[in-house]
């Protein structure tokens, strides 16, 4: 059972968390109130569905569901489960 360092709550077991997938995928157009810009629809489909899915270091989102409920960006090895870093997705804190 993984021990995930939450910048708010400290190291907590994995069953307190929910997994949010690859943290590196970014929508191709900036979210904006207008959003009227021409959308690259293929690029958007790729954003929705394509993943690097690395065997090794993976940057991913977790939510501390049964804790502080904050979203974290965690770097983890998908083979060894070694955890390299963890920080709040919103920016503050981290280690």
């Amino acid at each position: 059972m993984l021990l995930i360092p939450c910048p708010v709550c400290g190291e907590r077991p994995e069953d307190e968390f929910g997994f949010g997938g690859d943290a590196t995928v970014q929508p191709p157009v900036t979210d904006s109130a207008s959003g009227q810009a021409e959308v690259d629809i293929d690029g958007f489909a790729d954003y929705l569905y394509l993943r690097e899915n690395p065997k090794g270091r993976h940057t991913e989102l977790w939510v501390h569901r049964y804790g502080c409920r904050r979203w974290l960006v965690v770097e983890r090895d998908t083979v060894t489960h070694e955890l390299y870093s963890s920080r709040l997705a919103a920016g503050e804190g981290g280690e």
Binding site: L2, G18, F19, D22, H58, E60, R76, T78, H81
Partner: peptide
């Protein structure tokens, strides 16, 4: 198990 893994071994929960 609920998260990306190539580890071929599982977690306790």
């Amino acid at each position: 198990d609920g998260y990306n893994s190539y580890s071929q071994r599982g977690t306790w929960p």
